[in-house]
């Protein structure tokens, strides 16, 4: 790790000020991705701003029938939340499957989506549920517009995720085929029947989470495994690596979609 200055601001406003005042500063929330990155000297921030303990970023609340989760809420808290379990059980079980118990005890929702690892789980829920990302600049960014590319988001350099609002779906489920080594998603499919229609978000398969529109259309026509079978997933935009070639990933998208469908009921 390179040397850096450490800050633990007392408020979101102070965190935002620190971030805005220094282009080389970076945010630290749960640190489950960022600390390993620092350890391998893959990042060299001048300053690290620890927002993991900010009260303003905490809390899980019911809002407009859905759930609003603070950016610094840890995965284990989401997994264990009775509120989330009651309103959006798919989200709780997704959180329960992230990393391992110790990662879930430290890692945060805001950290996960701001990092936008192509194989992370939360982006699939944000897109799959049509969630809204709220920021320190007062913006409310639609889930569909938030993830812009591999490790890239719609956040401005000095903008901080404060919370995510997940509307309650009619039904939803997430199915993941994990990389046997890292346990990140090789393919993860979040499937939801929402007020605004069927949403199918796929993570792990491509450089960035995406909506599988062909699956959405087929499931809108008929909410059935046969609909999924009828769709062809184009592998040409999917990742190929030592763990899975693109055509296998394309196949797994359908298998995971069917598993999610079965789980969603």
């Amino acid at each position: 790790m390179y040397a850096f200055n450490y800050h633990r601001p007392a408020s979101l406003a102070e965190a935002a000020r620190l971030l805005a005042s220094n282009p080389e500063a970076k945010l630290l929330a749960g640190g489950q991705t960022y600390i390993p990155t620092l350890k391998q000297r893959l990042a060299r921030p001048s300053d690290v701003i620890d927002i993991g303990g900010l009260a303003e970023l905490k809390g899980i609340t019911e809002e407009a029938g859905g759930v609003t989760i603070g950016a610094a809420v840890r995965h284990a808290e989401v997994a264990g939340s009775a509120l989330v379990r009651r309103l959006i059980p798919a989200l709780a079980s997704l959180a329960e499957g992230i990393g391992d118990p110790q990662v879930r005890n430290r890692g945060t929702l805001g950290g996960s989506i701001a990092n936008n690892d192509p194989a992370a789980d939360y982006p699939a829920a944000v897109v799959g549920l049509g969630a809204t990302v709220r920021t320190s600049k007062g913006r409310a960014i639609a889930g569909d517009a938030f993830f812009t590319g591999m490790f890239e988001t719609a956040l401005e350099p000095d903008e901080i995720v404060t919370a995510v609002h997940f509307p309650k779906p009619e039904k939803a489920a997430y199915a993941k085929f994990p990389n046997p080594a890292s346990r990140y998603a090789i393919v993860g499919v979040f499937l939801a029947k929402t007020a605004s229609g069927i949403r199918v978000a796929v993570t792990g398969a491509a450089p960035c989470v995406f909506r599988a529109t062909a699956l959405e259309q087929a499931l809108a026509a008929s909410w059935s495994a046969a609909s999924i079978d009828s769709v062809t997933i184009d592998p040409s935009n999917l990742n190929s690596d030592i763990h899975a070639q693109a055509d296998y990933r394309a196949h797994l998208v359908k298998v995971m979609a069917k598993r999610a469908l079965a789980a969603a009921g």
Binding site: Y6, R8, L28, G31, Q32, I35, P36, K39, V48, D50, G52, A76, P101, Q102, V103, N105, R106
Partner: peptide
């Protein structure tokens, strides 16, 4: 009170 990886936490945290 909860388990954490001490290699993935700064001492200052």
């Amino acid at each position: 009170g909860v388990s954490a990886k001490s290699c993935t936490m700064l001492a200052v945290q």
